[in-house]
């Protein structure tokens, strides 16, 4: 069963067409890498699926639930649909950690705010908050940061910050986790720890969509690869097909720039 279905998605910024009809689907537990040159629309695609940007036309479904459909114009209905977008996590290129919270605080904040709406919050406050802390610690442990729980972002290396942001996204229990160039803001020697973390998640069968410029990583972590070019999917297939034996000359040209 497809956990993510994107159907004929387009996005215009004013008169510039950035996405020109994107369709693909992704099975549960699979890892999809999206590659493509700068400006081809990778980030825009991610943002549209996440609801940070509203697509111009098309349809998106997560876990068989529609989260966006340009045929629906009723505002309230659209709002309802957006709730299903909660199932998508996003890891940003620039981490976007909250500077005034510790690593632990970053992971727990959204959960603690959400917990306030629980009917039993007043009675069980202490137990609920402890449970949230325990959950957060579990995820920070998973990304190898159990010794940095009480450090503020400014006290962490770039790689550690990015791992906190991965833990923060995981703690929301997303059905799909998106990464937008998670290593691009890092010094080269720090990319390894992030890639290792993502590999572990892949082993745990986390469904992931990763925009990346790390071709070797894409090759061995992904089940599928999409090459985007100027707002369209120019090639879509297994890592072998797209990265080793590309058929589209544009893909070949793009990969050649990485050979050197």
């Amino acid at each position: 069963m497809a956990i993510l279905e994107v159907n004929n998605l387009t996005k215009n910024f004013g008169s510039t067409k950035v996405l020109k009809g994107i369709s693909f689907s992704l099975e549960e537990g699979k890892v999809l890498s999206i590659i493509g040159s700068s400006g081809s629309g990778k980030t825009t695609l991610l943002r549209c699926i996440n609801g940070l940007e509203t697509a111009t036309t098309g349809k998106i479904a997560v876990n068989d639930k529609v989260v966006f459909d340009s045929n629906i114009t009723d505002k309230n209905e659209l709002k309802e649909l957006k709730k299903n977008q909660q199932n998508i996590g996003l890891v940003f290129q620039q981490f976007n950690l909250f500077p005034q919270y510790t690593a632990l605080g970053n992971v727990t904040l959204a959960m603690k705010l959400a917990a306030k709406k629980r009917p039993d919050y007043k009675h069980n406050k202490k137990a609920i908050l402890e449970e949230i802390d325990a959950t957060a610690k579990k995820f920070l442990d998973k990304v190898g940061l159990s010794d940095k729980l009480n450090n503020y972002p400014c006290e962490l290396s770039g790689g550690q910050q990015q791992r906190v942001s991965i833990a923060r996204a995981l703690a929301m229990n997303p059905q799909i986790l998106f990464f937008d160039e998670p290593t691009s803001a890092l010094d080269p020697e720090l990319t390894g720890e992030i890639l290792k973390t993502i590999r572990q998640l892949a082993e745990d069968n986390m469904t992931m969509v990763i925009v990346t410029h790390e071709m070797n990583f894409a090759k061995d972590v992904s089940d599928e690869v999409i090459f985007m070019d100027d707002g369209v999917i120019a090639e879509h297939g297994s890592p072998e097909d797209v990265l080793v034996n590309p058929k589209n000359p544009r893909t070949q040209a793009f990969l050649n720039t990485y050979e050197k």
């Binding site: 940070l52 909660q86 940003f92 976007n96 950690l97 909250f98 005034q100 904040l109 923060r168 929301m172």
Partner: peptide
């Protein structure tokens, strides 16, 4: 940065939660 609001959004916080729990103290500083 817009990224702070966007991080709040993808974590399911409302706009006012984002302002009061994340943005405000940074503005104060």
């Amino acid at each position: 940065s817009k990224g702070q609001y966007e991080a709040c959004h993808v974590l399911g916080m409302s706009k006012s939660q984002a302002f009061f729990h994340v943005v405000l103290l940074q503005v104060v500083k």
